[in-house]
Design a protein around this nucleic acid. Structure first.
Lengths: 342, 342
DNA sequence: CTGAAAGCGCTTACAG
DNA sequence: CTGAAAGCGCTTACAG
């Protein structure tokens, strides 16, 4: 039989008992150095790997981490974050289990059930839309980390996010530095959401800082899809006094803005400037290449995963909430406004 | 104590033994109907869910499926497939564990170790670059399914893929019907790969069928990234007799083609036509919208997952290999060639 | 520092 | 049709 070795076989071969091998495996200190080395040699030689299910049942960890996402992994945005998470987690010997909430409340129950299973050693939440279940998981001592804005700043869940409103300030100031005075902006979701409001505040602050008026007709409702950028751009262009620059709330929305502009035969950036937000990989390949605000997506993933690994190892975090600053990536979609508009 | 109920508690409450509850849970037939109903009522009432680890240890299934991908989930292409897989698997009560091969041979060993664990009930391989480990897993009776081209047609692993070369025929014929005679095509990977050759054969067959010559300078090496499309388009345009249409091997490559054309101030489709391959979601939002060959990506995911679910349930598949036919999606990136080129 | 013992929550033969 | 028994491969007290 070419079966995978069990802890019992290792113990027999090393001439010790099963608990002793378990101690070595769990890096306990109450093992004689000689014993440890002997056991480790056998483990090495036989290529022993613990059985995950048995470990979990016995009360140990099982090397699985839940990745809880609100919807599907359907945007480059998520992918980038995931990439960072995967990087750290695989180094730590953890595997990811995808758990999709689909915005269904009943899925939360499933998640809780699975955790009381000890099916999983920890969980990473991407842009959670509720915190109730996270709190419940923490109450059951499951290490949890949130990546992305969380609904409440009061949360006690370790969080890593981008200081996005600063990005709005940067983009708006950059456009103004080019000479733009009529800058349209798109919202990034429902107007009553905290993040939406925070980001809008960045735009307003920049404008006010420069003594420019705020024109409500230049603030448009939109979401993360190209459709909304498309529709609002057409609306913007129909204004008596249209903007000379459009600030997209995210790069994927910018594709819709580009398209509306293309249809109206407006050249970017000669006739009108466009600036994005996120800097997803494909933004480097639009025509013209999109100037945008870079969020450190991979880094968010890496940091969040690192925090979780620490938590799972029983360590305590010194900083529960990490904010990453955005930066400006200047490509070719912005230029000074046309002469007659200055 | 508000703990999650165990099978023992259910048994006690229903007035039966533990094995009997287990039988009900596993839909065995050797249980009296009355007993079954009584047990099921208690299960229902207590919201009982089996402990995954205990199940796996005891010899049952644990509700986990490995999703084995060659690299990272870094393209819309994968995402679409994943979406289909997720759809079916979540219906079947299975969760996905992401397993990334990173093209590292040593990862194959890890995969094997994990499976002898019975950590997982089955595995779905996306575009595997080797079949050795899949065969080994099958030998250990782990249900496996391949989605995407597999290296050998002789494989005994159930597979679902697209009949991609037909797509190449369709695209080429469409371009010819528009009046094009000099059609460039990009390879979709190393020239010695089976898929690359098969797809090229589709292009050739269409051309030959129409009695058109095959010009080797119009067949360009490329991969799945925009960069290669970009570089080859510039090279194509520098030819003494440049093509009037370019056939991209995939939509993400088309972004590079668009960009090169944009830089050379060639208008699509007035000056030159571009056709893609895959029909990833963002292709509907390029400017102009990309005419492309649609691969049924979500459907591939759904079918593959469905096959795996059957296999895990102990059923046998009537068809081991399913081929999905592509179709043409006509948008705005193709037109008849300019007058002087006809 | 070491190991005998009990237990985690299931499952599968197998005897009745 | 039902259930007593043994076992899956670990882990954690706890006694020595």
């Amino acid at each position: 039989m070419n079966q995978r070795p069990t802890i019992a076989e290792i113990a027999a071969e090393a001439g010790v008992s099963v608990p002793t091998v378990s101690k070595v495996l769990n890096q306990r200190t109450d093992v004689a150095e000689v014993t440890r080395q002997r056991v480790e040699a056998v483990i090495q030689k036989r290529g022993y790997v613990r059985n995950r299910a048995a470990r979990a049942l016995g009360g140990g960890q099982n090397g699985l981490v839940d990745l809880v996402i609100p919807w599907s992994l359907d945007s480059e945005y998520y992918q980038e974050i995931l990439y960072g998470i995967e990087d750290v987690l695989s180094q730590a010997g953890k595997d990811m289990v995808l758990f999709t909430m689909y915005h269904e409340p009943q899925r939360q129950e499933e998640l809780l059930a699975r955790v009381s299973d000890r099916s999983t050693d920890g969980a990473i939440f991407l842009f959670p839309n509720s915190q109730a279940h996270i709190k419940e998981l923490q109450r059951r001592h499951l290490p949890c980390v949130v990546i992305g804005e969380s609904l409440s700043m009061l949360s006690h869940v370790p969080t890593v996010r981008n200081t996005s409103w600063i990005g709005d300030v940067m983009a708006t100031e950059y456009l103004m530095s080019l000479g733009h005075r009529r800058i349209a902006t798109m919202l990034c979701g429902p107007a009553d959401h905290l993040i939406t409001r925070a980001r809008l505040a960045g735009y307003r602050a920049a404008l006010e800082g420069a003594g420019l008026p705020i024109d409500p007709s230049l603030i448009r409702e939109a979401d993360f899809l190209p459709e909304s950028g498309y529709a609002q751009t057409h609306a913007l262009l129909a204004l008596p006094d249209p903007p000379t620059a459009i600030f997209a709330s995210c790069d994927s929305q910018a594709a819709g803005i580009y398209r509306a502009l293309y249809e109206q035969e407006k050249r970017i950036p000669r006739d009108i400037s466009v600036i994005g937000f996120d800097d997803i990989p494909s933004s480097a390949w639009t025509s013209p290449p999109l100037t945008t605000v870079r969020q450190q997506l991979k880094e968010m993933g890496r940091l969040g995963a690192t925090m979780l690994v620490r938590l799972m190892a029983g360590e305590t975090l010194d900083t529960a909430c990490v904010e990453l600053a955005p930066s400006l990536v200047i490509r070719d979609s912005c230029a000074p406004p046309p002469m007659h508009d200055r």
